Simulated assay, not measured.
Amino acid sequence: MQKVWLITGASSGLGRQLVELALERGERVAAVVRRPHALDELQQRYGNRLTVETFDIRNTERVQQTINSVATAWGKIDVLVNNAGYVLRGAAEEVSDAQIERQFAVNLLAPIQVTRCILPLMRKQRGGRIVQISSMGGQAAFPSASVYHAAKWGLEGFTDALRQEVAPFGIQLTIVEPGGMRTSFSSNAVHAEPIDAYEQTTVGLFRRRIQHAGAASDPGDPRKVAQAIVASMDADIAPERLVLGADAYDVIRRALAQRLATLEAQQEVAHSTSLDR
């Protein structure tokens, strides 16, 4: 059965790959972009199976209007992919208030609001899939990206709780945690003004390592990542998490192992704080 997708951040990179693959499968796609004409080629190729909306994903009113118009035109929305986002690089002390607010607005508040906008429709449909594009940075953390990590960890916590809230309505959620991919994601990063005191710390070392490596060193193939996401739609039970990329697997496994070891070492003290009976 033909599915209807709504994909944000669809101008390029992973978002565009998802649009292309869904269309190749014969699906209908509503793509949200910020750059006019970004998908003109696909529009010409696929005609009325692709509708493109151009606006800032922080505009919740436009989000709701788009969801309503797509549902009216095509009768349903089966899959929402919250893909729009970017990375803010800088130590917590280096980033500005405005940079923090925008990072949270785009990477956390926007996907929460888009998700909330679509829930009444999916609840009425008695089903739907919501895909939250997180990152290996939603399970592990690196210096010089503290605010980015805060947003991604927040999105994952929101999704884990929401999954339990909407399960009775047949709505399923998947958190996708990719590693580095050969896209413009790194080159589109926003950088805080450096503070000299951090240059010989882990912040400066990590910053230089990223600058030296560049996006060309990222091991992930965005099309293969998109293929894995699209393939997961065919499963009756959606995966709660989808780790994509050898780097993501290694980083997340190491982070989880360290957290589990820390937890287990605290078993005695944890139990010691219970009330005496």
Rank of each mutant, 00 (worst) to 15 (best):
T202I: 05
Y198L: 14
L242H: 09
L119K: 03
L109P: 00
G245I: 10
V176N: 10
S146P: 08
A265P: 07
H212M: 05
F169G: 02
E199C: 04
L155N: 08
E199A: 13
D97S: 09
E240S: 11
G9W: 08
N48A: 13
R49I: 03
V203Q: 09
Q266A: 05
T115M: 01
R58V: 14
A216V: 12
A246G: 12
K76A: 06
L108G: 11
R241G: 00
H191Y: 14
S135M: 12
R34D: 11
P178T: 13
A105V: 03
I175C: 13
R208Q: 14
D221H: 06
A265G: 15
Q2N: 11
I118D: 00
A91S: 14
R35A: 08
D250H: 13
T201I: 01
V114W: 12
A248F: 08
G157H: 13
N188S: 15
K124P: 00
V70Y: 01
Y86I: 03
V147C: 07
A140E: 11
A231L: 08
H149F: 12
H37I: 02
D276S: 13
A248N: 04
V176S: 10
K152L: 10
G179E: 12
Y46S: 01
R209W: 15
D40W: 02
R62W: 08
E156P: 03
V190C: 02
H271E: 11
V95S: 03
V33Y: 06
V225K: 05
A84I: 02
H212W: 01
A197W: 09
I100H: 00
V190H: 11
